[in-house]
Design a protein around this nucleic acid. Structure first.
Ligand SMILES: [Mn+2]
Ligand SMILES: [Mn+2]
Ligand SMILES: [Zn+2]
Ligand SMILES: [Zn+2]
Lengths: 161, 161
DNA sequence: TACATAATTAAAATGAATACAAAATTGAAA
DNA sequence: TTTCAATTTTGTATTCATTTTAATTATGTA
């Protein structure tokens, strides 16, 4: 049997989740898409290629099971749907308003690092931090576009519209 | 005319929002419930007492207009619905898993305070930070319950169930 | 008054997530 | 191997927040 799947099997067993085929494939997908923070829809869509009859409900059920056992984290940042993250350690995210991608961001934060577990008397169990803005790549590609149009203006002598 | 409503009228005018009756009342409600972070439903429910035919759509429309003009902030923290906050300055929140309330939390954060506007090359436009856990009041009332049952046990000699 | 524009409303549509019950699978015990 | 209960998967229906659409109403101006 696939050595990777054996590894995933152990992970599920360790968390007290019975390792079924669909659960293994969902876990496999998550591990391959660590940095994508996929939606339920994305996971389902992709798995349909391998398991043509896997139901959306199963993906929901599985992810909820994973959530309960702390195997994954749910990232609610777009406001419309939950994104799933196999990295369940508390870390920050950045959502690009231009290209829509969600990336991990490392920032110094005593709360995320678990150094402080209480704020003003309130006991912290979860820390959620994220930014919205324009990502590096989108900023750069905008600069490039501007530069190009400057060149074309200098050639034509026409102002940009 | 109500002096407060005149004040709200100015606020809307300054933001380029035509001050209609329903908009003024929604703004008034928000100002009275600053610390509540109400849902659309809560706002609608309450306003129905004053304006028996105000529609849920109008509340949605109005809040979306307020959001666009930066008059309010949308707090998505429960995962199910948006909570609205007349304090649009970026600040942290705490959601109590026990009693469900959402409170403002002041924490030292260079990003929320606007000192840093870029993280690893990505341009920040919004900063969102919140915690989930057990609030001070709920923690205290749990302690009290425990203490009480200890007293009652010492009186009755019976173990707690 | 008449017309244009904007705001409000009710009704319908959308979309993520859950509830539910039937069918399929699993894993022992007999 | 057969049996049988427990668990999982599946498809469908439903819920719930929010958006869209289109009709109605209010507002302002010529
Ligand atoms: Mn992440
Ligand atoms: Mn607040
Ligand atoms: Zn981008
Ligand atoms: Zn509480």
């Amino acid at each position: 049997m696939n050595t990777k799947l054996k590894y995933f099997k152990k992970i599920l067993n360790d968390r007290g989740i019975k390792p079924t085929y669909q659960r293994l494939k969902i876990l496999e997908y998550l591990s391959k898409n660590m940095k994508n923070h996929p939606t339920v829809e994305m996971i389902h869509e992709e798995l349909l290629k391998d398991i043509p009859i896997i139901s959306l409900t199963t993906v929901y059920n599985t992810l909820n099971a994973f959530l309960e056992k702390g195997l994954v984290d749910g990232v609610t940042i777009t406001g419309t749907e939950t994104r799933y993250d196999l990295d369940a350690s508390s870390h920050h995210h950045f959502l690009c308003k231009e290209c829509g991608k969600i990336i991990d961001i490392e920032v110094p934060c005593a709360f995320a690092e678990g150094e402080k577990t209480v704020v003003r008397g309130n006991r912290i169990e979860e820390v959620h931090g994220y930014f919205k803005g324009i990502c590096k790549e989108c900023t750069d590609s905008f600069k490039n576009k501007t530069k190009k149009s400057n060149i074309s203006r200098s050639k034509t002598g026409q102002p940009n519209r």
